[in-house]
């Protein structure tokens, strides 16, 4: 295998490991940190089922964001859903052996690249042109968007502007990563740039704000049932205080 292929292969595993280990650690941290008080925010559901509905509305529809800002919602929602579709669109590359029928039907999902680029550009434009958003943006906030846009652009160039790499090699390389049966990368700068940036994105997941993805499920304002009067809610460290309670 060429040195480039080796480096990319190693980088892939490195990035995925960093991501998995990092996110796992973060999730463990969130899960093991106590929630001493009931702090659901309005409109607070009174039942578990209500919480599930609320979470689905937030995760699938971005309902709070919709209330807050229609433009940010439009850009953000398009971008996230396009990303999901394009993720599915990439699964066939990695599928070991015969690609299942259903995944072969994903060809047309490639058009999601356009809403993706549209959404990301909109978000980037907001960072530049809306003074409030500019004020709160750190360099990393711009860079993350630019990284995503470049990933989308390189992908779109290959797909729609005929800068195809050798597709057989792409399949072999991607499949090889999954089956540990490594093979040579196809040549082509655009392709290499594309996957390099994707690997970077994977690697920085646990040390960046992409942590909002697991974070949202741990948000106590969103995931708590509003039933404090009915059911006692108490954390371990608070419970310890009661052992020497004197009635007030």
């Amino acid at each position: 295998m060429s040195l480039t292929s080796i480096l990319f292969t190693v980088f892939f595993y490195l990035a995925v490991s960093l991501c998995l280990v990092g996110v796992t650690l973060k999730v463990i941290q969130y899960a093991s940190t106590p929630v001493p008080l009931k702090i659901p925010t309005a409109p607070a559901p009174l039942t578990k089922f209500g919480v599930i509905l609320r979470m689905m509305r937030e995760v699938f529809l971005f309902s709070s964001l919709f209330k807050a800002s229609k433009w940010t919602w439009l850009f953000g929602w398009l971008f996230h859903w396009a990303l999901v579709l394009l993720f599915i669109r990439h699964l066939p590359y990695f599928w070991p052996g015969e690609t299942p029928e259903i995944l072969r039907q994903t060809e047309s999902l490639r058009y999601a690249a356009f809403p993706l680029i549209f959404g990301l550009s909109g978000l980037l434009a907001r960072r530049f042109f809306v003074d409030r958003v500019r004020y709160i943006s750190a360099p990393s906030d711009y860079l993350l968007l630019i990284l995503l846009i470049l990933i989308a652009l390189t992908g779109a160039l290959m797909t729609f502007a005929q800068f195809y790499p050798d597709m057989g090699k792409v399949y072999a390389f991607a499949e090889g990563l999954i089956t540990f049966d490594w093979s040579e990368l196809p040549s082509g700068g655009i392709f290499l740039a594309h996957i390099f940036m994707v690997f970077v994105l994977i690697a920085i997941f646990p040390i960046s704000k992409i942590l909002h993805a697991p974070g949202v499920f741990f948000s106590p304002t969103l995931n708590q049932v509003d039933d404090a009067r009915k059911k006692r809610h108490i954390s371990d460290w608070a419970f310890d205080k009661e052992k020497n309670s004197k009635g007030g």
């Binding site: 106590p34 704000k209 909002h212 954390s235």
Partner: peptide, 18 residues
């Protein structure tokens, strides 16, 4: 380490400006 809201809120903000 005592209030889960803090690590979650501090990490999760994407600076969307909403």
């Amino acid at each position: 380490s005592k209030y889960r809201s803090l690590p979650v809120f501090l990490d999760a903000c994407v600076k969307c400006g909403a």
